[in-house]
Structure formats: C-alpha cells, structure tokens
C-alpha cells in the first residue's frame, strides 16, 4: 500500500484509478466479512439456547461457580504438565538430532546406526502415542523395579520422548536434505571433512529452516502430555476428572481446555508467523 491510500477522504482525487478501484474492493470485502461474521455469531447466541437440552448443558459445562472454585486447582495441576514438558523437550531435541544424524551416516562401518535410525523412526511414527505410553508405562514398571524407578512419570515421559524424537528426527532430516548439494561441494572444496561439513555448514542451516515445523511438534507434545494421565500422573486433565467426580459437573474440563488454549494458541500463531517469515525470505 502506498502513502496515498492512507490519506484522509478529502484527498481522494490523488488516488490513481487502480488505487481507487482496489480501495473500493477492499472496503467491500471488509463489509461482507464483518456482516457474515455477525450473522453467524448472532445465530449461535440466539439459536443454541433454544435447544431443548441447553439449560442442562449450561449447568454442567458452563457453571461459573464451579469454574471459579476449581480453576486454581487446575492451574496447580497444569504445572505438572509444564514440568513434564520441560524435561521431555530438551531430551527429544537431542535424541531427534542424533537419530537424524544416524540416518545420514555414509561410512559402511556405521551402517547399523543408519539401519537403526530408519527402523526407529518407522516404528515410533507408526504407533499411536497412547499405545506406546501404555506399553512402556505399564510394561517396564511391571518388571518389578524398586521405587523410585517404577514411577509412571519416568516411563510415561520416556514414551513421549521416544515417539516425539522420531518425528523431530524426520523433520531435521528433511531440513538436512533441503540444503543444496552445492553447499556441501563448497565446503568439501575447502578441505573440510564430511563431519565438519555437516557440523558447520549443513546442520546450522537445516535446523534454522525447520525450526517452525519443530515448534509445531512441541506444541503437539504439550497437548499430549495429558495422555500420561492414563497411567497415573495427576496432571490437569486427570485433576479435572477428579473435580468432575467430586462436583458432578463437567465445567472443570472447560477450565482445563481454557488453560491449554491460553498456551497453545499464542504458540501456534507464533510458529505460523515464523513459517510465513521464512517463506517470504526464501521466495
């Protein structure tokens, strides 16, 4: 947009024909968008309460009193989600990177690593997260380990780490593949070894290129931490379930949803912003 279009109405004659046309188009689309949004919101607000079960739903899901009473407890429980996320995330990042590098080794002596990397990513991307959590979370403590080694926090976290590292590894590998081979040629021509080329030339660019994609994975991880509730830890989802049973009311689940969204929506927007920025830079 040029300066001219932002001048006050009185200066309209300074617009070119094209600018005036585009301004008309823009105003029209803003009006239509506002009108249709308003219509939908009105319909929801007016029509939903007309549904026969609305009063019951309102009482059991949107009870202000229950919300106020349980929300602080939910926030406390959410700290457990945050803690699990915080110790899983760095391990996932490192393991994902290591697996990605395994899949790029060229030397025949290291072929087993390459094979392991391929099998690892295939297996853990091919299983539902909840299944891995059940198998590891119930299976390993079943070996009769002493405390604290039978903690579901440890084995649940391990399940998340194994699954998410597989996804992160694939994302990083796609980043490595995206670096043009001329970069490797330039590094090789200066006498750098394959390892040095990877470390100083390819990886720094690859990781930067896939940072937004990895961010989306970590947002998904934050949500999937709630799955650990199935094997024991009383995190926010489990806590909401406890409140539900105590108060015979579903409002705590809405409270938990609010907490998740407060974190994931800004994070998702930020990842999108990063991704758009990258796309603009590359075009």
């Amino acid at each position: 947009m040029t300066d001219q279009t932002s001048l006050p109405r009185g200066s309209a004659p300074t617009l070119t024909r094209r600018q005036a046309y585009e301004q008309r188009l823009r105003r029209r689309s803003i009006t239509i968008a506002a009108g249709s949004t308003l219509a939908v919101v009105l319909a929801v607000v007016l029509l939903v309460p007309l549904a026969p079960g609305w009063d019951a739903v309102k009482r059991s899901f949107f009870n202000g009193e229950v919300f106020a009473k349980t929300f602080p407890g939910l926030l406390d429980a959410f700290l457990i989600n945050v803690a699990i996320f915080l110790w899983c995330a760095p391990i996932i990042a490192i393991l994902g990177l290591v697996i990605a590098l395994f899949r790029d080794v060229r030397s025949p002596a290291l072929y087993p690593l390459r094979l392991f990397g391929a099998i690892y990513t295939d297996v853990f991307r091919g299983l539902p997260v909840i299944l891995v959590i059940y198998l590891i979370g119930f299976g390993i403590p079943g070996l009769g380990l002493p405390r604290p080694w039978n903690s579901p926090y440890i084995w649940g976290s391990l399940a998340l780490i194994l699954v998410y590292a597989a996804y992160v590894a694939e994302v990083i590998r796609s980043g490595i593949d995206s670096i043009h081979h001329s970069q490797r040629a330039a590094a090789a021509s200066l006498g750098l070894s394959d390892g040095e080329t990877m470390r100083y030339v390819v990886l720094p660019q690859a990781i930067r290129n896939v940072a937004p994609a990895n961010m989306n994975l970590f947002i998904a991880l934050q949500k999937d931490v709630a799955l650990l509730s199935f094997i024991g830890p009383v995190e926010v989802f489990r806590q909401a379930g406890v409140y539900k049973s105590l108060l015979a009311n579903f409002t705590p689940y809405v409270g938990a949803a609010v907490i998740f969204l407060a974190l994931t929506i800004p994070a998702t927007r930020y990842a999108d912003y990063l991704m758009n920025k990258q796309r603009r830079r590359q075009s």
Partner: peptide, 27 residues
Amino acid sequence: IGIVFQSFNLFPHMTAAENVMLAPRRV
C-alpha cells in the same frame, strides 16, 4: 587447490569474514 563456483556458494548463515575463516580454522 582452490575453486570458485559460478553460483558463489557462500554459506548464508555466516558473515563474509566467517565464511573466509571457516576452513583455515577447521582444516
């Protein structure tokens, strides 16, 4: 043996000076 390519092939994540210093430092 030094080689210079048609498409420059500088390392985009490094400054000009870092591009130049990489190989003397590492090799």
